[in-house]
Amino acid sequence: MQDVEHVARLARLELSPEEGERMREQLDRILGYIDKLRQLDTAGVEPTSHAVPMVNVFRDDEPRPCLSPEEMLANAPDRSGEFFRVPRIIED
């Protein structure tokens, strides 16, 4: 349960006791599955972080058109002029 609370806090999620309990059960099942995977002998196997065996994909440093501020702000829950407005930030 401590893990659930920690992860929820990092993700800025507020969970009710029932939700927390449901998450705990799900997380347990996921971790159980990971434990199963851990039993495999992976010594000498490079960790895979990409499904495609590619390296060095670049773009040239050329500016391209942006979206307009109006388009960018279209989905903003709150705005002030051309700025996004967010609730005041409280440091933990």
């Binding site: 500016p63 391209r64 942006c66 979206l67 051309e82 700025f83």
Partner: peptide, 16 residues
């Protein structure tokens, strides 16, 4: 991404 990096542009005008 290709958004320009010019300093001092109008707010939220250089995003994608």
């Amino acid at each position: 991404c290709g958004c320009p990096t010019t300093f001092g542009a109008a707010p939220n005008s250089q995003t994608c």
